[in-house]
């Protein structure tokens, strides 16, 4: 896994250095308060102790490499861009539900399924997970597998396949981590197949390469 040298963010100052842990503590504490629903001293105290323990464990976990040898430090998600990404994703969920509902209820069911395989230039594993989940939630596409930089996606009609390989969503996800990226450069090496065996063999080739 190679990382772009230009995308490493300088970590200075207390807040910037521990931003991830502070946010994590805030989210966990909010979760604790919502789930407990009691706002007097004792539950809050136990909550604070648990949150401290979890944050301490997570700070250790960040330095353990993933199964592909990648370490998740150095690149941070841009919170402001995430806040604009989430409403867009919610809108996509609504659109996709209406789209699949339309396909379901159409008497002739105008579907033309295909398996698309493409290479993405996203910088790290977390971005790939976000993209994979987003692909599954946007109209007519479903992530089947991610190996290395290659995504295998099931698309249900031709139109959604074109939207997918245009790279619009990749660039949106890429912008969560990178300063700038255009749709054209994100999505390369596209191949479309309608046969499951071919897609399976392509997956196994990737496995052997690693």
């Amino acid at each position: 896994m190679t990382q772009n040298p230009g995308t490493e963010q300088v970590q200075t100052g207390f807040f910037k250095k521990y931003r991830g842990l502070l946010l994590q503590a805030l989210v966990l504490m909010a979760l604790w308060l919502i789930l407990s629903g009691r706002f007097y001293f004792e539950p809050i105290f136990y909550g604070a102790v648990s949150v401290a323990l979890v944050v301490w464990l997570n700070s250790k976990i960040r330095h353990i490499p993933l199964s592909n040898g990648e370490i998740l430090t150095g690149q941070r998600i841009k919170i402001l861009r995430l806040l604009t990404y989430i409403p867009w994703l919610l809108w996509q969920i609504v659109m996709s539900a209406f789209f699949v509902a339309y396909l379901t209820l159409h008497p002739k069911m105008p579907i033309n399924p295909m398996i698309v395989r493409f290479k993405s230039k996203l910088p790290n594993s977390l971005a790939k997970v976000i993209l994979g989940n987003s692909i599954s939630l946007t109209p007519g596409t479903l992530t089947m597998d991610i190996r290395g930089d290659y995504f295998t996606v099931h698309a249900i009609v031709d139109k959604v396949e074109q939207d997918l390989v245009s790279g619009d969503m990749e660039s949106r996800v890429g912008q969560l981590y990178l300063d700038s990226c255009t749709p054209e450069e994100m999505c390369t090496d596209i191949s479309i197949t309608k046969r499951g065996l071919e897609a399976k063999k392509a997956l196994q080739r990737d496995e052997e390469k690693k």
Partner: peptide, 19 residues
């Protein structure tokens, strides 16, 4: 209604999530 397991997964993921 959908013909195979992949298309059925489409229906199960997207429509049910919004539901």
């Amino acid at each position: 209604r959908f013909p195979d397991v992949y298309c059925r997964a489409h229906a199960a993921t997207k429509v049910d999530t919004l539901g």
